[in-house]
Design a protein around this nucleic acid. Structure first.
Lengths: 226, 226
DNA sequence: ACCGCGGTCAACACCGTGTCGAGTCGAATC
DNA sequence: GATTCGACTCGACACGGTGTTGACCGCGGT
């Protein structure tokens, strides 16, 4: 528990500067304050002073724990993507059993994870434009998911369940992009958006038609009936 | 030509405060400076002073022409969406002649328009998070395009070329969202993206499969052979 | 000659960020 | 029990960007 600062092992010092001690409370207090405030107003309207006061410390002290406002958000985002990764775990392996059911499970779980932390996700999407760090981390996360989906599509094609077509990577990018934007609109509620209770099925439909050319891919592996 | 300030007739005073005169030059100089600077660095790194100096005026004078930095961007965005609307004009009407060709033309024209003003589009996407005005205008524009696509899908279904399925509006939202996000990634170049020369065909493929369940919808109107 | 007004800017007030230097406090160490 | 060290804290400052104010210029109309 000593070195496990940032969840994404690679990135070294996002949070505190050095060793650990009672200040752990403060760090989590800042994080909690951020999430609480984010539920009320956009990140741009939250000053570092707000975060500091919310955690019961002064502004300079904030800088002891985090190098900037966005570092806080980054830490919050780490948690969410970690949770999403965990939620998605094991779904790809069992795709062949019942493609529709498992693709749906995949999308539904992401939906649940993002929906459970919509304030954080929304805030990230909002600052991604202006903040290179957030952009980089998000790109990294997305790349992982794209690769996973690409591999799944290729596997489905290899076993004859899905027809050939677009390069699997391009398709995976397009589909992931769609989900991201559609979720954003649904959660943000500005502009045209799909109703929250329908969004999983809408996305699923597009995924299935794009991958299989049908919304009801075969449950039984192919190979023809003997 | 006196009252035609903002292209989007409805929104009244985006540009100058009052009447017209030689200062028209200055206004366009600001716009030109903005577009030029946007090609070099993100909007956040462009101060109002940069804009003013670029147009040969002082910072306070800038405020005589535009109420804020984002008002400049809004005006620029107006132009682009107008151009996109014009480019898309008339495509929907002739969808039945050759669905694939015309959907492709639609996507390709949008692609060309956005690609031709990528700096403006990218800047808008980046500040949409933090700027309510941009968000509102973009939502408005998107709503128009969603409605148009929805109507086209319904027409294709009515004439029997496309099968029933998702509510046409939801499908239109999902497809438009995908395009937006995919284009953004392609133009921005950060994160997983489709190569620029492939992007139109990738998007087209997903549109066709989602709408028709095939990438080669029939060229001849249906109704069965007599 | 004198408005009125489009157009212009120097100077100011304000706010949020990030930094610096001076400090406090508790737990090892001697 | 004094000393030292490093974690931790904050008051105060410098900086940069924004938006506003008040004075000013020049020119066409009366």
């Amino acid at each position: 528990m000593t070195t496990a600062r940032t969840p994404t092992g690679a990135a070294p010092t996002r949070g505190r500067r050095a060793g650990r001690s009672t200040g752990d409370d403060r760090e989590t207090a800042i994080l909690a304050t951020a999430e609480r405030l984010l539920a009320q107003r956009p990140l741009a309207d939250i000053s570092i002073d707000d975060l500091a006061r919310g955690a019961g410390i002064s502004r300079p002290t904030f800088y002891f724990y985090f190098p900037s406002k966005s570092a806080v958000l980054l830490t919050l985002l780490d948690r969410v993507t970690e949770e999403a990764d965990a939620a998605a775990g094991g779904v790809f392996e069992r795709l062949a059993e019942d493609p529709r059911a498992h693709w749906r499970k995949l999308i539904a779980r992401f939906h649940a994870t993002f929906g459970g932390h919509r304030d954080v996700v929304l805030a990230c999407a909002q600052v991604r434009g202006t903040n290179a760090e957030v952009r980089r981390l998000w790109a990294e996360v997305l790349e992982r998911w794209v690769r996973a989906v690409q591999a799944a599509i290729e596997a489905e094609r290899a076993r004859g369940a899905a027809p050939d077509g677009l390069p699997a990577r391009d398709l995976a990018i397009a589909l992931n992009s769609m989900n991201e934007r559609v979720w954003y609109a649904t959660f943000a509620g500005d502009g045209p958006a799909v109703a929250e209770r329908d969004v999983v099925d809408v996305l699923l439909d597009v995924w299935l038609t794009a991958i299989y050319r049908t919304t009801t891919p075969p449950v039984i592996p192919s190979g023809g009936t003997p």
